[in-house]
């Protein structure tokens, strides 16, 4: 644990120039292309992007769970100062689930169907702690109660299929938070739930993470989800972070044309009569990313310079940054 003076300035998770490639016989596809992220203690970061933008791969790469043909080809992931990229598997294993946890999109498939809930939770506890089965069982029951499973001390002996999707996602959350991790990566964790459950589960995760002091990276394609949840947003496009900043700054004044397009395509009650805006074209496939700015083909403001070379990152106030030659808002500080 860093001294109190340092915790304010040192992010709990610092990702620098993270690169992930998928190699086949013919070519190497770059799924994550130099991603930088900072996450402060207890902070919630929304990682937003279309499907295929590399946001899930980024999450898995931070966990060290990229399987061949995928490879982390470079960069650094530091969890409270400890480098994770290139670490031995047993080192990573002691971090996974204990200090860095992850939950996934589909609650109906994240729990092993042939193992009871208590088995799956006790093994998660005992993977990182020397603890008797009896006290592990007590911890499991408490953890399930915390996520709102009724009659947890009996229900923990049930199998996953005996729970609804929402309940299963709560169980997954309870498992992920068992060790009060420093960081929880949630990959579309509420997308598969119906809308009424979604809001409920979201606010529960938020308060649980807050109580545990756990910082979160909330991966989603849905801007409206992160709007109410996140402190900061990072927008991802074709393997790169194209814009980051505080939620309010980005939602009210997007600087990258892609972010602006995403925001315009969210349905809103105050303009329901109008047609929904959409970004023209579709996201480039990894094998055909345009040279220069990856978004240039779909951008209304693209100039010849955009297609020549990848745009540099322009830093602004309050941790704001944008990867665009012609940002929509000229931040006073980006000179």
């Amino acid at each position: 644990m860093a001294p109190p003076g340092l915790t304010m300035t040192t992010p709990v998770l610092r990702v620098r120039d993270l690169r992930v490639e998928f190699r086949s016989n013919q070519a190497a596809l770059t799924a994550v292309n130099g991603v930088d992220l900072d996450l402060d203690r207890g902070e919630v970061l929304g990682l937003v992007g279309e499907s295929g933008s590399g946001k899930s791969v980024t999450g898995l790469a931070m966990m060290g769970l990229i399987d061949p043909p995928g490879h982390v080809t470079g960069g650094s992931v530091r969890l409270a100062g400890q480098e994770l990229v290139g670490q031995a598997e047993h080192e990573l294993r002691s971090v996974r689930g204990r200090r860095l946890a992850m939950i996934f999109q589909d609650p109906t498939t994240t729990l092993n169907p042939v193992l009871r809930i208590d088995t799956q939770m006790i093994e998660a506890l005992r993977a990182h702690e020397r603890i008797s089965v009896r006290s592990a069982r007590r911890r499991v029951s408490e953890a399930l109660e915390k996520v709102g499973i009724p009659a947890a001390s009996e229900r923990m002996y049930s199998y996953p299929h005996q729970f609804s999707g929402g309940m299963r996602q709560r169980i997954a959350i309870a498992i992920a938070l068992l060790h009060n991790p420093d960081v929880l990566i949630a990959d579309e964790a509420t997308t598969a739930l119906d809308v009424s459950r979604q809001a409920q589960v979201l606010s529960e995760i938020q308060s649980l993470a807050e109580a545990a002091g756990t910082a979160m990276i909330w991966i989603t394609h849905d801007l409206s989800v992160v709007a109410g949840l996140a402190d900061r947003i990072a927008v991802m496009y074709a393997g790169r972070i194209v814009e980051t900043g505080r939620v309010a700054d980005i939602l009210t004044a997007p600087a990258h044309p892609y972010t602006a397009g995403l925001i315009a395509s969210v349905p809103r009650h105050d303009r329901s009569s109008r047609r929904l805006a959409q970004i023209r074209g579709s996201a480039p496939s990894l094998s055909h990313i345009p040279p220069g700015c990856a978004f240039s083909d779909r951008c209304d403001f693209a100039a010849p310079a955009c297609r020549a070379a990848p745009p540099p990152t322009i830093e602004g106030k309050h941790g704001r940054s944008v990867r665009c030659l012609y940002p929509l808002v000229s931040d006073e500080a980006h000179a």
């Binding site: 294993r93 996974r96 689930g97 092993n112 093994e123 993977a127 498992i175």
Partner: peptide, 25 residues
């Protein structure tokens, strides 16, 4: 399957992944 990925994300050792999660399935 997702549950194998989730089991790895819990930090389980390979013996448990293969000997319990995989074998039982």
């Amino acid at each position: 399957q997702d549950f194998m990925l989730f089991a790895r994300a819990k930090g389980l050792p390979p013996t448990r992944l293969v000997g319990v999660h995989l074998l039982k399935n």
